[in-house]
Design a protein around this nucleic acid. Structure first.
Lengths: 230, 230
DNA sequence: ATTACTAGTTATCGAGTAA
DNA sequence: TTTACTCGATAACTAGTAA
């Protein structure tokens, strides 16, 4: 018997939503068509094919019909759901890339030492960062592209503040690990020049010293990303 | 921007399975085509359309490409998954129907009083059934059709046994409720005449007396069905 | 090896309509 | 009202092939 066509997925899901798992439910092809965004004729065809494939059972009396999902049909939906669930939950929530240490003073270095930020770092990250930032130059385009999408995710949000004269923007921190050893945070600044080929890190430690790395050393970075939807 | 087409679902899922949630992964159109059961050309087109719709991002270098799912693409998959999950878990696991009491001795009545069965009823259901079975005649075809699919589900399994001379088949019990009051079990027998217009019930109580019902009374039955997959 | 175009085929769809 | 047919339009796909 034929496989479940992906185009029939919505139709099957709709029957399930109407309570057709164990009981025959009354569904007209017109209403089904509307629900799945297709014509009445297409809905009719969908039902015919689903019946032929053994995914639903129909009872027609006069011009009305009752529909019920078969065990096979339900298993099919469950299987797909399990597959998707596993894929989604098992997908590693990390971004890994390589780059080289660069000295170019990160724009964040100065600001990150301001009290308005350090106070928040202490409470939200649990430490006051070592003064200065570590700058990593990313060579491969695919890495910088991937990093530029980071802004879509939450991270740890450091709020903007004002010192009376001017305001300083928010900072998003993403838990990272350099060379599989040093814990640190990648920082995304609200006010930045959007050059994603250089990324900045803050850490409790002096990363350069701790790793005994210097200018142009290659480093491997792993960034953890948490989803913000349930 | 266009919606995610259902035909692209498998493609997106495959990219996710390759680790493309946050990192760019190398996927050839040939391998993708094989995975989704389509041609290399179709795979190529899928990627083009997914990119156009903002669901994936591609980086092409020479004749190879790296692919990454966008935040939008991942949300789309998650949303669909959540929808399916809810539908599947919220679908009521019960079958409801109406029928009339009938006196025709159920075939099970005699056998259900045998020690080989009663011992198991006691341990698996927690009670020894009142002698005899209640027989309900089902009038509407849609109900008998729905019941005939019950055999695909597990229920409480009473094992076959032998008394030395002959063997007696298994019995499957499904927790039921008659007229929203009396707890009982619908029984499916391994050796039965497969007439699904009459169903039999066993109960701790004398159902007729308890409900003060007699021949040809109408009853409403609700059968609970448990899934046997995770 | 790649990706992706063009051209031809098949599947899917919707309008019109019958029953 | 319903379901579902025919048929023409469009979308999706594959084969062949170029780059």
């Amino acid at each position: 018997m034929a496989d479940l066509k992906t185009q029939h997925l919505l139709t099957l899901a709709h029957i399930l939503s109407k309570g057709g798992k164990h009981n025959f439910v009354n569904i007209t092809t017109t209403s089904l068509g509307k629900e799945i965004g297709k014509s009445q004729q297409s809905a009719s065809l969908h039902l015919k094919e689903l019946e032929l494939g053994g995914f639903i059972e129909r009872i027609q009396s006069g011009r009305k019909q009752s529909i019920k999902i078969t065990h096979k049909g339900f298993v099919e939906l469950s299987t797909l759901n399990n597959l998707l669930s596993k894929l989604i939950s098992k997908s590693p929530n990390s971004l890994t890339f390589t780059g080289t240490i660069t000295s170019g003073m990160g724009e964040g270095a100065y600001y990150m030492s301001m009290k308005g930020y350090t106070k928040q770092f202490k409470s939200k990250l649990g430490y006051i960062p070592y003064p200065g930032t570590l700058n990593v130059q990313i060579k491969e385009k695919k890495f910088s592209e991937a990093i530029s999408q980071l802004s879509n995710y939450e991270g740890t949000k450091i709020s903007p503040f004002s010192d009376g004269k001017r305001t300083f923007g928010w900072v998003k921190c993403f838990k990272s690990k350099i060379n599989n050893k040093i814990d640190c945070e990648l920082i995304l600044l609200e006010r930045t020049h959007h050059d994603t080929t250089i990324v900045e890190f803050i850490s409790k430690y002096n990363i350069r010293k701790s790793l005994k790395i210097s200018e142009k050393s290659n480093v491997k970075v792993k960034i953890s990303i948490l989803d913000n939807f349930s």
